[in-house]
Computed example of a mutant assay.
Amino acid sequence: MRITLRVIGIGPGNPRQITLEAIDAMAGVDAFLVLDKGADKQSLAAARREILDRYAPDGHRVIEIVDPPRDRHPADYDAEVRRWHAARATLFAEALTATVPDGGVAAFLVWGDPALYDSTLRIVEDITTHTDLDIALEVIPGVTSASALTAAHQILANRIGESIHITTGRRLADTPAGADTNQIVMLDGDLAFRHTADPADHIWWGAYVGTDDEILVAGTVGEVGDTIAEVRAAARQRLGWIMDIYLLRKAVD
């Protein structure tokens, strides 16, 4: 069985940040595969539905797949993520086989950009390795939350001649010396900067960037660190989920 599989970056949530290439890629899709992440993330699902309603062809088909459970505090993080991705790959392969005709086209909609801290391409590789599906893969880049963040704050990601380090909250403490001048930090549920940064370091934080729920906070870590924690907790309580990101910059001596 041969299918075309399009992995389409749809940006951080604002339907107007969809690229023309992404809109073109939605045409001719037989089935859009979407993960159902539970009732507490219905507004997230609603944002994806709005994008499909705006740009996908009339009568488009959406296949919802319940996201398999994941241990959020495993003893072996890497092993648990690999297990979770393999479980997703199995469900996606079953859905593709059952719903997409031979020679057909399926698509995943990926928040932000498929190449930046997203698991979809790894899962597709797992499917092609462990199933009989013959997949012609197409990847469409999207606006990243990193670029949406700097645009929302109207700033550059670095000062002249400086490098930019992109990492996660889990790895923030492991940033090598000299690479911490400008750090874009994603997936930081514990706000690790509160333990790693100097009070004089500057932070530009954003949640739901580019959407109607956008929240922005900026200042030194000493000035706004507690505020970010409070605002983040309140937003997560209100909406049931949170997508946030920040730029952390060392103070100039």
Rank of each mutant, 00 (worst) to 15 (best):
I215H: 02
H60C: 10
L44S: 13
A233V: 13
H195P: 04
D102L: 05
T211P: 06
I65F: 02
A115D: 14
K41S: 11
E162G: 03
A235H: 08
T129P: 11
G222V: 06
G225T: 01
A146L: 13
T90C: 10
I51D: 06
M26A: 00
F108H: 00
E125W: 02
I123K: 07
R236A: 12
R54W: 12
F32M: 08
V139L: 02
H85Q: 13
I65H: 13
V217G: 04
L121D: 04
A31L: 10
D190L: 10
W84Q: 03
M243D: 07
G112S: 10
R61W: 03
V7H: 05
G210F: 14
E214T: 13
D134A: 00
E230T: 15
V139Q: 03
M186Q: 04
P68L: 03
Y77N: 10
A89D: 12
H85R: 07
L239M: 15
I23A: 01
R249Q: 02
G59Y: 13
H130K: 09
G240R: 08
V34E: 07
F193S: 03
E50V: 09
Q183R: 14
D188I: 08
W111A: 07
G112T: 13
D134I: 05
G219P: 00
G178R: 03
A207F: 13
R49Q: 15
L172Q: 08
L96Y: 09
P199D: 06
V217D: 01
G169A: 07
A229D: 03
G11D: 04
D126L: 01
Y55M: 00
T175A: 05
D76E: 05
L137E: 09
E223W: 08
D174E: 02
I140Y: 04
Y77D: 11
E50R: 15
G222K: 09
L44W: 09
P141M: 01
G28C: 03
H165M: 00
A148G: 04
P74I: 01
P57L: 07
A157N: 02
A106K: 02
I160V: 15
A98V: 00
G59N: 11
R48I: 15
W241A: 14
W204M: 09
